[in-house]
Design a protein around this nucleic acid. Structure first.
Lengths: 84, 84
DNA sequence: TATGGATGTCCGGATATCCAGACAACGACG
DNA sequence: CGTCGTTGTCTGGATATCCGGACATCCATA
């Protein structure tokens, strides 16, 4: 399968509807990058507990508010690898 | 210019790097939808003051944290019309 | 078995956020 | 000019959030 390049399963762009889908996408890309929560938290300058909550979708009101606005406007949020 | 379809200036997808770019995108789509801040706030179930702050990029830590995570992972966030 | 890395989850408190309500400035339009 | 609609901004105060630190669990693997 895919004779060309490497083993880039890439898993396509992620559509974000909810805190849970946001978390899932972040987790996917973190694992793809081979980082632990602790490492990523360190690099992004935040707490590992927060990151864990974020990935499991426990993230809350803030994000929901913004997603609600986007939904009302019929706008979709997409996350994808910025493959430079 | 653009002989083809209508007056769909559409303005392409928005890349979100910062609270300010997020706000600009939201404002763009709100105006495109012909809604006032008050109307959109009402529909999304939130305060107009908050929406104003959001659009002017005064939105803060929460969003910045998440954008920091995405940056570390080399992931980009895009907003675009879900043209159904 | 035991040791270590990774993750989920609980607690408590400092801190940031969001809301309501109000006001000023601006433009359009009668 | 006067009025209305829209938006930016301020002030409190109630509330949600994030953090550090700790503990249990699960999975490798020595």
């Amino acid at each position: 399968m895919k004779t060309s390049s490497e083993a880039h399963d890439s898993e396509g762009p992620f559509r974000v509807y909810t805190p849970a889908t946001l978390g899932a996408a972040i987790r996917h890309y973190r694992e793809e990058a081979g980082l632990s929560q602790a490492e990523l938290a360190e690099r992004a300058g935040l707490n590992r507990t927060y990151l864990s909550d974020l990935e499991t979708g426990r993230e809350t009101e803030q994000v929901k508010r913004i997603l609600r606005v986007l939904k009302q406007l019929g706008v979709r949020m997409t996350l994808e690898k910025a493959d430079w």
